[in-house]
Design a protein around this nucleic acid. Structure first.
Length: 451
RNA sequence: GUCCCCAUCGUCUAGGGGUUAGGACAUAUGAUUCUCAGUCAUAGAACCGCGGUUCGAAUCCGCGUGGGGAUGCCA
């Protein structure tokens, strides 16, 4: 009988959700939903000093924002509670005792401690730790769903020193708790970053020691900085928490990171979450690391913005505008809808619609005005005034013939008009401007325009 | 140092014993009812090197080089 797929995302609460971690979560999610399985969220907070409540909230918020709903874990519960490693000590004790009884672990003097960068702190060792006795009779082979077969020679003790499982203070190391939880929670597939590959050989030995069948492993390639270096907290795009405030759409970020290290083997690029689920397969995950390109991520955001309904776009852009001090009015909403085609990020919207509350004349743009600006403006104003009924399209259509009539290029009329109405040379289409401002305000701004 | 993984345009990638090596981002140029933006069109841009196998290698194999990861009382 086929066992039901069970996967887990097991982050440790470090204070933020890394874009690489988000992608690991996403791949687990896509695979699980595709297989109709169960997605577990487990918090690996064994390192007590680093365990902070806000740090875990960053993970939950990030996953919720992306739309990666989990089936067991925080806020939901499940048959294998608790889902926090800090609360599972008794379970680990039980498993550890089995290793003691079987003679697979031994007590020995503690090695020197290390700092956060992995450098040894001299003469700090005291007390004893428990190490796992690796099987030394041959080569261990990992059958990885992404990387294929990988082998490491465990007869070479130099490369594979017996790992510590229990600290001086009696707490357990990641390797032990990770494997025990995967056994207890009946995890069938472990999808994690490639930085874990060497750990997996250790984990394979632990599964064997417990007499358990290991899960299927799939190690996905890392995400690097544009220069190929490792992405750390400070690097552009590294923290998922920054994306909402920068005006990214979650569906765009999901789409973008899904295509970093995986692709559906066709030339499409824009996918919804459901489409990604339908197309996802571990076989199509790449082996090479991918560099993070924020420019393409923004382009993808634009693509998703353009696919939003106008109402939806206005709803999502509105908070950015009110936060920038713009008053929520029907005119503002109409203006926002008018720039949907123009922006890459929601955070750009305020700058595009600021003119609604009055023109802010930009020095650089003003300097490019031609001598006949006032003349053209008056000409256009007269034509506008003569309109019996104000209609943006009709008004807009007047401008071109008027310019031609006077032997100047269309831009000679359009440019001063744009500046008079908004103060800026960038902005939404002229028809949008005329429609949002209406006849009276349009004429008023043309009159007061300083030129 | 040792171990493991990886290698196609600047970037994300498709392809994979015989191809004009395809697409997208970015870039450049042109077009457009607004010197911006957007949109459209066009262009330039790649198989890391050397050996081997083969009629034929970017593709398979070996070696080098480069990059990344791991070598913790971090996870």
């Amino acid at each position: 009988m086929e066992t039901k797929v069970r996967t887990r995302f097991a982050p440790s609460p470090t204070g933020y959700l890394h874009i690489g971690g988000a992608r690991t979560a996403l791949f687990n999610y896509l695979f699980t939903r595709k297989m109709g399985g169960t997605f577990v969220l487990r918090i690996e907070d064994t390192d007590q000093q680093r365990h902070v409540e806000e740090a875990m909230q960053a993970i939950f918020m990030g996953m919720r924002w992306l739309g990666l709903d989990w089936d067991e874990g925080e806020g939901i519960g499940g048959p294998y509670e608790p889902y926090y490693q800090s609360k599972r000590g008794k379970i680990y004790d039980r498993y550890f005792q089995r290793l003691v009884d079987a003679g697979k672990v031994y007590e020995c003097p503690a090695p020197n401690k290390r700092d956060a960068d992995g450098n040894e702190i001299p003469d700090t060792s005291e007390g004893t730790v428990w190490r796992f006795r690796f099987r030394r009779d041959g080569i261990i082979t990992l059958h990885d769903a992404v990387c294929g077969d990988i082998s490491v020679d465990y007869t070479n003790e130099e490369n594979t020193p017996d790992m510590v499982l229990k600290r001086t203070d009696g707490s357990y190391i990641f390797h032990l708790v990770n494997v025990v939880d995967d056994i207890e929670m009946k995890i069938t597939h472990v999808i994690r970053g490639e930085d874990h590959i060497m750990n997996t050989f250790k984990h394979l030995q632990l599964f064997e020691a417990f007499g358990e069948k290991p899960p299927v492993y799939a190690h996905i390639p890392l995400i690097q900085n544009p220069d190929g270096s490792k992405m750390s907290k400070r690097d552009v795009g590294a923290q998922l928490g920054c994306y909402p405030e920068e005006g990214f759409l979650p569906e765009a970020v999901v789409n973008f990171i899904a295509l970093l290290g995986w692709n559906p083997k066709n030339e499409r690029e824009i996918f919804s979450m459901q489409e990604l689920i339908d197309l996802f397969s571990l076989e199509h995950v790449n082996r090479a690391a991918a560099k993070f390109d924020i420019t393409k991520c923004k382009w993808m955001n634009q693509q998703h913005i353009q696919r939003l309904s106008p109402e939806d776009f206005v709803q999502r852009a509105l908070p950015f505008c009110t936060a920038a001090g713009l008053e929520d009015t029907p005119a503002l909403r109409e203006a926002i809808a008018g720039v949907q085609e123009k922006v890459q990020l929601l955070s750009e919207v305020p700058a595009w619609v600021r003119w609604v509350q009055g023109p802010v004349y930009e020095k650089e743009a003003m300097e490019k005005l031609q001598d006949n600006a006032r003349e053209m403006l008056d000409l256009i104003a007269d034509a506008f005034r003569d309109l019996p009924e104000w209609d943006a399209q009709t008004a807009f259509a007047l401008i071109k013939p008027l310019c031609k009539e006077h032997g100047v290029k269309v831009g000679a009329g359009m440019y001063p008009l744009r500046l008079a109405l908004t103060g800026s040379h960038v902005g939404p289409g002229m028809d949008v401007l005329l429609s949002v401002l209406g006849k009276e305000e349009t004429l008023r701004r043309m009159e007061i325009f300083p030129c």
